[in-house]
Write a protein that binds this DNA or RNA. Structure first.
Lengths: 275, 275
DNA sequence: GTTCCGCATGAATCGATAG
DNA sequence: ACTATCGATTCATGCGGAA
């Protein structure tokens, strides 16, 4: 397996990737007005114009059978939900993207706080875009026990986390599936119950590893290529590598690149670096 | 308390209501291509144009301090989520509405099925619109014991999931809340876990009564006026009456009006009718 | 009166068939 | 070709009947 961590702005670095080469793009770009240090703190009103060129490049590098998962949530501006996400979806469809589905990430432990006019925000959008209607989807890779799937699934995941078998490289989840065969399995829904990762070390990435891992299992097979143009501390790359997928990550902050490489080497798997 | 059930098309009947008279509008209009008998089965491409005049009238009758809760979900058309909901939000903002918040209704028992390209749809949008930023909100009326909405760790996840959200706040919230004050109460989030009502008697109301009841408690006080321009079998009116609010319901199907009146009388509360 | 099991029932979606 | 109708798929829920 190969992991390429690229230091730089994805607005430039994406041009270096060949067309039709990526099986899955899963990313959580900086939300409007956040991460001001890295991308200049994109204003909500400028967000669509800022992201559209990136979306066009992502569409170029994605395979026709590939999928793009965009984790995003609109900011509250002047007491209102801003509409840049809605406008972004409409504009990306004009670029040729298909807006196939909208998954909901229900954050069970959402950010605390109290405001007079709204409750805590406990969900984010996971927008699924595709280039064609005939995209790859391995539904059996994410099947869950009947009845309720959130809890047991998390238990299973933590179990596999705890047990660091060498056999996981290659066909890791194949064994999980075979372990489930014979029991009563159900397909999941488009609502994901995951807790944010709290108490993390240096970065504020609340992106739990189970999130990219779920979509990697669903939309790729072992040996496929995963891309995260806003890699951050490398959560997507770690998930991809653990599942036996190749990964390309682009990150503009040098300290995050270092952190990502450290996280990757810590899982004791081959890692190739390039700038 | 007063309950007015109006037989007719809300596109006409809303004109008979005075301006700035309603505290809360909560409704679930027919989705695109469904309920063909009642409103002719609005095509997805025509949905925005069909709803916008209604939205304008709703804005007229709503008090400046009032709230409009719109339950809606986009249909899949040709393998894609249709964008009429996104466009409706943008157009309603051009009408002057504020898009304050988007709640998520997580349907625990969603419709079954299996498809090669998508999972079961387990959520719907609950869009909150307002006329002004200073709307009424009684957050204490919907507080819940800790652990129901927030806080539970992954261990508790399966336990709380298996429990069938009996809505402990259910009825008579005022006294209950006052009794709970001093104990551990938490404010809810913007994600609602409710099951649709299946196996009901005569109607196919998937709108669970807890849904309008929750918003009625949150956005109105006793004696206020609630409006549902697509009353259906009267779920909103029953919830309003049980909570001591006045209600106006408009429904185009005569059999639904009869059903709504029957449901209202069955709860043994005063009921005034008018056409 | 409890608990347990069986069964009908959905704001669904796709693919095939028919006009 | 494009649209309308129909069958197949699938699972949480709440009811009724049975133990």
């Amino acid at each position: 397996m190969e992991s390429r961590i690229i230091l730089g702005d994805c607005r430039e670095k994406l041009a270096g990737l060949p067309a039709d080469s990526i099986d899955l793009i899963v990313t959580s770009p900086p939300y409007a007005d956040s991460r001001a240090r890295t991308y200049g703190g994109i204003r909500p009103d400028d967000y669509v114009a800022w992201f559209l060129p990136i979306a066009a490049e992502l569409r170029r590098v994605l395979k026709p059978s590939g999928t793009f998962i965009l984790n995003i949530k609109e900011k509250v501006v002047a007491g209102e939900r801003h509409v840049y996400v809605l406008e972004l979806i409409l504009e990306m469809r004009r670029q040729g993207w298909l807006w196939t589905e909208e998954f909901i990430w229900h954050k069970r432990n959402c950010y605390p706080g109290k405001w007079p006019n709204r409750f805590r925000d406990a969900w984010e959008r996971l927008l699924q875009f595709n280039k064609t209607k005939s995209f790859t989807m391995n539904q059996e890779a994410v099947m869950v026990p009947m009845g309720d799937w959130a809890g047991p699934r998390l238990k299973n995941l933590s179990a596999t986390d705890r047990r660091r078998d060498p056999s996981r490289v290659g066909s890791g989840f194949g064994k999980n599936v075979s372990r489930w065969v014979g029991r009563e399995l159900a397909y999941p829904t488009n609502v994901l119950h995951l807790a944010t990762e709290t108490g993390n070390r240096n970065h504020s990435a609340v992106f739990p590893k189970e999130l990219p891992a779920w979509f990697i299992r669903l939309f790729t097979r072992a040996g496929d290529w995963v891309l995260d143009p806003f890699l951050g501390s490398g959560t997507t790359a770690v998930a991809a590598l653990e599942l036996g997928r190749n990964c390309i990550g682009i990150e503009v902050l040098e300290e995050n690149v270092a952190l990502a490489k450290q996280n990757l080497t810590s899982i004791q798997l081959p890692l190739l670096e390039s700038k």
